[in-house]
Nucleic acid binder design. Structure first.
Lengths: 216, 216
DNA sequence: TATCGACATTGTGTATACAATGATCACGAC
DNA sequence: GTCGTGATCATTGTATACACAATGTCGATA
């Protein structure tokens, strides 16, 4: 594995799990030493992170980890909505019926069995992979990848609550079955509803966290 | 100006205007020598072009200029439609009325006067800038920038015809006035129509070019 | 005491040198 | 004659050295 890949993976992970908090200044020399690579591959890693939007060059002198505030989340979800609604419509038109019917069934099972959180996230991931595959659009796929990269941090901010998780499973089931039925409008609207609910929950959780920290 | 910026600008320009044709292999040493920079900044430039999707690392050994075929154009326009419809809707909700009313008026004037091609492209560019500004969404803006970068090459493939240009001005006028009126649905649908017409023209022009070259 | 200037320190931008990997060509064996 | 194996060569990946720019601090002067 290339040193630049290792550096990118390490920095990405550190930023996503919060080890490198927003606002942290990433000096080339410093990070190169920390990760055990030289400055050249580290610069490449930083450039990739900058392209992803996870770090930003504030001045030629300082590269910092980007912040995640409520307005960023708004922007991210506006973008996400545009992409995922388009994706859902395309999938409804193009997807082989069987694939998403099977996924809908699995979402149904997950609800009934009440499987744990990991199982759900795994199922969601497979749903995303299938979606990317049937959409057959590298631009959309690439943009969705960016969105998902940022979502990892957003999810970390808002604690996931079990009620929301159950609702989310049910919403996914509807989206999958709409795609399976070839109903583009329903797939689009169900996606819209899903994202609206997800955003509402996240913002509420964020407000709660602010109030708590304010009270503490 | 940084050497890496110069290299990026030079390569971008060369790719967009066709001096570096699709499929061209870009060796680091070779291009560094050609552009008069060392390999380090050139690598950075190549990385940025790869992030833009204008070049691709086929193997760790060869970086080539990406091809533009009909399927790529389909993908690009699916993506563009998702972004621009979302952008039009957001603008209709958020834009100060006056700004886009003025733009609509200018599009109207352009039609009447029959101003030349450069004036139209200039007006379009200002429309895009205004759109980006009122949308206030860095993710959307960044994705739209990528789309526009690719569109430059697509436009080169299809020769622009005057009839289409006139229609395009008229379509833009409607989009601008819909945004000015705060009518999100109309702005979205007018954008949809505009992109449909643009794509149709491009694909037709592409077919024509193929037949001609086949006949020649 | 406050402000301006100069110098030092730190960190990035670029170049170049070195190491490693992959490809190609030639030679030999089957 | 063809296939396989090895060696050489080119090209990338990484490291390091050097140059330049920016910022901060210290001192001197007003």
């Amino acid at each position: 594995m290339k040193a630049s890949d290792r550096a990118y993976a390490a920095l990405l992970s550190d930023i996503q799990n919060g080890a490198l908090a927003p606002g942290t200044v990433l000096g080339e020399t410093e990070q190169a030493a920390r990760l055990g690579v030289s400055r050249t591959p580290l610069r490449e890693a930083l450039a990739r992170l900058a392209a992803d939007g996870l770090v930003v060059q504030q001045s030629p002198r300082v590269t910092v980890v980007t912040d995640v505030d409520a307005d960023d989340i708004r922007q991210l979800f506006e973008f996400r909505e545009a992409l995922e609604i388009a994706a859902a419509r395309l999938a409804a038109v193009r997807a082989p019926r069987a694939v998403f019917a099977a996924l809908a069934e699995e979402f149904d099972q997950t609800t009934l069995v009440g499987a744990g959180r990991p199982a759900y996230y795994d199922l969601i991931a497979r749903f995303d992979v299938e979606l990317d595959a049937v959409i057959d659009n590298s631009y959309l796929a690439s943009a969705l990848r960016t969105v998902r990269t940022h979502l990892v941090r957003v999810r970390r901010l808002s604690r996931d609550n079990p009620t929301r998780l159950a609702a989310s499973v049910s919403e996914h089931r509807l989206i999958a079955s709409a795609i399976a039925a070839g109903d583009a409008d329903l797939a689009a609207h169900a996606t819209h509803v899903h994202l609206h609910n997800a955003l509402t929950t996240i913002l509420a959780s964020l407000d709660g966290a602010i109030h708590e920290s304010g009270a503490a």
